Simulated scan of single mutants.
Amino acid sequence: MTPDRILDFAAELAEEAGRLAQALRKDAPADFVSAKGEMDFVTAADRTVESLIRQRIAAAFPGETVLGEEEGGAASELFWVVDPIDGTTNYLKGLPDWGVSIARVEGGKITHGVTACPDLALLAQAVRGGGAFLGGVPMAAVLDHPVAIVQLGYSTRTDLARHLDQLKWIMSQGADYRRSGAACIGLLNVAAGRSDAYYERHLNLWDAAAGLLLVSEAGGTCMHDDLLRFAREGSEVLALGASAWVDRVDWTAFRAGDDRT
């Protein structure tokens, strides 16, 4: 893995942020969590961890802006994208599928991406044109297992009936289904060759930026809106690994919401 100053910084920061999140959860006060909306929670740790990340970026890269889940921000020619805790419900419940995601965008392209999953002791990182790595080992989004697995994200921002139709369609195609509850985990699993695909009707850029680079640098394919629009409005996201099953599927029909059952 070729050294990269920005990637090394992001990786160290994501791991530091993950340790902080774990410590804050351990000593959580009674008012640690509050609801932002239906099935949407925020903790004191989300805010504290994002604040730490912003402080570190400001000190290391003065003048570079940050778009984060908790404190907002705006896209620009060069900006960082931060999700302090993706998978907050899992984090709260003590389930391991959550992570800290940090990405850097320049000229409308994701150039660096890191996902740290503290409870799983995993660190995934990618640099544009330089490959994707998990624990320092190259990742490849290639699957040859006879059973396909699709991870399908869901939030209350999208239509439940359509989501259920997609579940039925996936199973009708001979595939199995998983929902991790964290986009960063779903995308990491595609990049690592553990899942054939990840789909979510609407994601915010901070949910996906690091994971999208992991998938593309591991040899997968990602479909979403251009990054500036993604940053403003969110986007549909489809990430595909390389497998015979993926090649057989009519993903255009799947995304369009045609009658699949």
Results as ranks from 00 to 15, higher is better:
A126T: 07
P118H: 09
R104G: 08
L164F: 14
E69P: 07
D46H: 06
P3Y: 13
L238S: 02
P96K: 12
K36W: 08
A231H: 02
G37I: 04
F41E: 11
V100F: 01
V237S: 08
R157H: 15
V215K: 04
V49C: 09
Q151V: 11
V114G: 03
A209I: 06
L160W: 10
P138C: 05
D225S: 13
P29A: 11
E217H: 03
G37K: 11
G174N: 05
A116Y: 15
A140N: 06
R128H: 09
Q173K: 14
K93H: 14
L203C: 09
E64C: 09
G257W: 12
K93D: 15
I57N: 06
V42T: 03
G219R: 09
K26N: 10
K36I: 10
S216L: 04
R248L: 12
E15H: 06
I110Y: 11
A59W: 00
A209F: 11
I102R: 05
H224D: 04
N204F: 15
L203F: 13
G220P: 01
V142E: 13
C222R: 00
A121T: 08
A140W: 04
L134I: 05
P29M: 08
E70A: 04
D8V: 05
R54L: 09
Y91P: 00
G63A: 09
A239N: 06
Q55K: 14
R260N: 04
E236T: 13
A209N: 05
L213P: 01
I57Y: 06
L167K: 14
A30I: 12
A116D: 07
V33Q: 11
